[in-house]
């Protein structure tokens, strides 16, 4: 039954749908409009506008990844130990929002945070000072955390569930306290899940243009926004490709870290 030629259609598909298209990004990235070789598109990242956008992307995605991690780890721990109903059901509740269209979820925050929106109306009811969150970097971070939190919860939860309860008991028997068990047993064993969660949040946050567009009001430029504009409104594909190559470098670096820390693929999302 196992014949190699069954894989040929997919190999062909990978060639046409992944390798050649990514090759096209390299081609456009290293040529100018007349098709001559140039490094100008890649080096354009050093221009102040682009540098600022990349810096902002890195900053916001690091912050949102950190917030997700600090929120998701305790959550996963609680879910692991929870006796609330069926375990599967509790996890289900925390990942259900993921199945809602992510533009709608982001839009929801725009509606809530808008000038004179529900958020500010509630603040004024409580006699608190008005607070303009929309169109600020903080709003973008909020959107990233909201959209990508389940991506952090799932892998960490999966890894925690795989930890053998006997190991934890053995640690207690050998005289370790709660803190020691956590720092020497649970935390090291959950590294694959943490690493996988971090990449699953970091990469989409770094490359997003949707969240920054909806919650940043088109005033805050992330590297994703710049690239998207080069491909749609400005129609400078060469520059867009060059900048994408720089962005891809950061994706590749985070993938490489993932590979080293989670060599067995234990923290797999699915």
């Amino acid at each position: 039954m196992y014949k190699k030629y069954f894989a040929f259609p997919y190999v062909f598909w990978i060639l046409c749908g992944t390798i050649i298209p990514i090759g096209m990004i390299f081609y456009y990235g290293f040529t100018d409009r007349s098709g001559m070789f140039t490094t100008a598109n890649v080096l354009a990242i050093l221009e102040p506008v682009h540098r600022k956008a990349l810096g902002m992307s890195l900053l916001l995605s690091l912050i949102s990844t950190l917030i997700c991690l600090l929120t998701a780890f305790p959550l996963a721990l609680i879910l692991k130990g929870s006796r609330l109903g069926r375990k599967g059901f509790m996890v289900f509740i925390f990942v259900l929002p993921m199945w809602m269209n992510f533009l709608l979820r982001t839009m929801a925050w725009q509606v809530i945070l808008e000038k004179g929106g529900i958020f500010n109306t509630m603040l004024s009811y409580l006699h608190l000072p008005q607070f303009q969150l929309i169109n600020t970097p903080a709003a973008i971070v909020l959107g990233m955390v909201y959209d990508f939190l389940p991506f952090m919860v799932l892998p960490i939860y999966n890894v925690l569930m795989k930890i053998d309860g006997n190991i934890i008991e053995a640690a207690y028997d050998l005289g370790a306290g709660r803190g020691k068990v956590f720092s020497s047993v649970v935390l090291p064993l959950s590294v694959p899940g943490i690493v996988s969660g971090v990449t699953m949040v970091f990469v989409p946050s770094l490359t997003t243009f949707v969240i920054s567009n909806i919650l940043g009001g088109g005033k805050i430029y992330l590297i994703g926004n710049i690239i998207e504009q080069e491909f749609t409104t400005s129609a400078n594909w060469n520059l867009g490709s060059g900048l994408s190559l720089v962005m891809m470098l950061f994706i590749v670096i985070s993938m490489a870290i993932l590979r080293v820390l989670d060599s067995k693929g234990e923290g797999n999302f699915i």
Binding site: P204, T208, F231, M247, M248
Partner: peptide, 17 residues
């Protein structure tokens, strides 16, 4: 590669392809 790639890269690479 396809699985972990950023959506925007998949999008523009397919468009160029």
């Amino acid at each position: 590669i396809t699985l972990l790639n950023a959506d925007i890269v998949t999008g523009i690479s397919l468009m160029l392809g």
